[in-house]
Amino acid sequence: MSIMSPIAPAPTRRLTVAQGDSIASGDHDIVFTTVLGSCVAVCLHDGRAGIGGMNHFLLAEPAPIANEDARLLNRYGVHSMELLINAMLKRGAMRQNLKARIYGGATMRQGLGEIGNNNIQFARRFLANESIAILGENVGGTSARRVEFRPAAGLSRCKTVSAEPIEQIVKILPPASGDVELF
């Protein structure tokens, strides 16, 4: 006689979320993984729809613009978050059901200034603006992190690692970013 385990089997497909990526899934067989230094990853989950998503970004300093409310909102960060939210909504998630966890934002070495902290502040500010609750954070410090996220179940795990990820400030752009076409 076989006994069914009440615990869902561990995912077997590992997808690496690289810097600049924003991906979502409702597949119980998938786990997203990434390694973060100064970069930040935001994991979003809709528990009702069973859809989760993760992005991975590194932003430069906030833009020197006059509007104080918008200063912390780096447009490339907003773009990365919008790509993530859109990917989730296309799979059936609902914006009002989204919950978040934030990872990364370490100060890996002198010279990168406040970039890690700025990325954390951006993520918090964006999520507050969008009324998306933050369920947890593992951010800051001076060590790199490995994050695993099971998107369907919304389960995440974060470990400090000794390896230092290769990171560079990149603009998260679609192929024709900013292009204007008048019909």
Binding site: E82, I172, G178
Partner: peptide, 18 residues
């Protein structure tokens, strides 16, 4: 019936010019 199409993230100057 759209007048034009702009891909995010937008460039402030390009958007204003359009």
């Amino acid at each position: 019936g759209a007048t034009g199409w702009i891909v995010k993230p937008f460039d402030r100057e390009k958007l204003g010019a359009a």
